[in-house]
Design a protein around this nucleic acid. Sequence first.
DNA 1: ATTGTTGGTTCTATTTTGGAACTCATTATC
DNA 2: GATAATGAGTTCCAAAATAGAACCAACAAT
Lengths: 168, 168
Amino acid sequence: MKWHDLNDDACPLARAMGVIGDRWTLLILRECFLGVRRFDGFQKRLGVTRHLLAERLKRLEAMEVLERRPYQERPLRHEYRLTASGKSFAPVLLAMQDWAQHSLPNAEPSPFAFVTRDGGAPVDPVLTDRNSGQELNHRTVLMVPSKSVPGTAFDADLQRLEPKSAGS
Amino acid sequence: MKWHDLNDDACPLARAMGVIGDRWTLLILRECFLGVRRFDGFQKRLGVTRHLLAERLKRLEAMEVLERRPYQERPLRHEYRLTASGKSFAPVLLAMQDWAQHSLPNAEPSPFAFVTRDGGAPVDPVLTDRNSGQELNHRTVLMVPSKSVPGTAFDADLQRLEPKSAGS
DNA sequence: ATTGTTGGTTCTATTTTGGAACTCATTATC
DNA sequence: GATAATGAGTTCCAAAATAGAACCAACAAT
């Protein structure tokens, strides 16, 4: 299975990995949220090669996560800005940073923080259900296959594994 | 900059990318949440090569996201289970799936869903602040550098970019 | 005795990255 | 007026990662 095949995958998570499933893309997005918009800004701050950066920016643009727009003429120069899709990625970034900080070994204090726009107080993120307000985590939510995928070992494998004790 | 250098990076997000910053790891984790625990289960359902799967499982184990434990002797066989860290990754997975489904082009209905354990109702995830209950998104939260990193173009670049109009 | 299952490892070929140098348009400096 | 600097890439080659397939080992089942 090749890299780009993921973009056609039925699973949204798999398609997401086609976009952000590499070492740099998420960090580029982080820089966007920090306010960086220009090629050299990303390049200098991340240390990514110009080659890959150009490639990643192109992909993010193709996926409509970033948009490229001119900020001056003579010489013509473009900057990259988050689109609506890009902005809606904020909660993912936040959840991930929270996870990394609390659950990954060797945690050092983060070089940046998330604060409320009104007041600047640091935030403590929890995922909740919009309707019930209930906290969403591995104890309250269950992931279930919503349809079987014919031709794969999908069902057979799960059927065999689940009965032992529903994987918590 | 090499792959593994990220694991030593100060930024938790960068370290997270050292773990899940590839095409497969997140999908392996998804399978874990669906109840898959064995090598062949992952391999058949994902189509990843056995080579890479072994490598990824080893890394997830090293990062204490998964643990390898024997489920039988004669012949000795091991299964992979989510650790506490692994389980706490659930909100990230949920937020990401939600983002992919709503914000990525070509969205097809997902082959699996997140439902509440009590009742099985589909969930509608929102990230909120544990203290204020306020919704957390690009309009309510701001990402700020919490310290400058000497030797990098960190400050210079941000200083130059931010004044124009705080990147929303 | 042969085949099947589970959980890997090893091998080679192909893709992706990393790193550095080069281009082009335009502005700033000596 | 010549030379350097800026910004945004592109091109080229070497190094690393991934894909795909074959192989191995410990048993169990037929």
